[in-house]
Write a protein that binds this DNA or RNA. Structure first.
Lengths: 143, 143
DNA sequence: TTATATTCGGACTCATATGTCCTATTTTTC
DNA sequence: GAAAAATAGGACATATGAGTCCGAATATAA
């Protein structure tokens, strides 16, 4: 469904949001520990999320990653997924046909359409804030 | 969503079913041409589908692949997907957490559950026959 | 200003998915 | 029985995803 890179990216973002909600900046090392991900690899993913401005970073002592309350509220799961995995999850034909479309459908196109629409709705409507709150209230896990 | 291997496998199965419905056995070469897939790679995939008895093969002149009417009617998309890609599509946590479950959910587990259930329902309810008929009646494409 | 703690970014390694090639085996036809 | 046409299967090759390493840049604190 999602690449591992994307899974790590989402988990890291949720954790950064959580810490930011407590007014804290978080170091890569701590993030990797808390979400149980390889540190150096996570660094690469966070770089990408910084470039698309989903999260912010600062170098040097007491540096680390953080997220503005604005971003926490406005950023959706879809933005993270698209930034890391691209648009395939929304666009790619289930059978891999490049020409597949509503007027030129593959054998499962119409059946699959509502499922895909629900998936896209889920991605575009779920905010980072929502996901972070689940963790904060200990209703959900992050590792 | 699905691996390319799986996409080729499904398309090949649909085409073999179509030909079988016309009483014909189909060669690898023809299959690969018709579904626009790499021939040698498709051979590997078909081997796997033969082993799990979704399709049948026969060697020698006039050999090739075919599918019994029984199989065409009873085989579902899920069987092909599970045979090639395994159970990840039904089981893997969206955020990649090995411990994620209903009682120990990740941040999107509950939201994602109905979408996943719809997806699984689609896979387990769509038969090869259905998919083949779409092609036969020229309501759907295969390449 | 120097030591230290941090991110940045390029080059590299490793694993897995994707794809190819060649020979063996089987079956049919002549 | 020999030739031809097909699948089977192992070994190999290539591309992509996943992950590591290390030096450079930057910021803070003593």
């Amino acid at each position: 469904m999602l690449s591992k890179t994307c899974e790590y990216g989402i988990r890291a973002t949720i954790f950064i949001a959580l810490q930011s909600m407590l007014g804290m900046r978080t170091s890569l090392k701590y993030i990797a520990e808390e979400i149980d991900s390889p540190e150096a690899f996570t660094a690469k993913i966070l770089q990408k999320l910084v470039r698309v401005k989903i999260i912010e970073s600062s170098k040097g002592m007491n540096g680390g990653f953080n997220m503005s309350m604005d971003r926490i509220k406005s950023t959706t799961l879809s933005e993270i997924v698209y930034a890391i995995d691209g648009l395939d999850i929304s666009n790619r034909c289930v059978l891999g046909l490049s020409q597949c479309s509503s007027i030129n459908p593959c054998s499962v196109h119409h059946k699959f359409k509502p499922v895909r629409e629900d998936l896209i709705a889920l991605l575009t409507k779920t905010t980072v804030e929502e996901m972070a709150i689940g963790i904060k209230e200990k209703l959900a896990i992050l590792r």
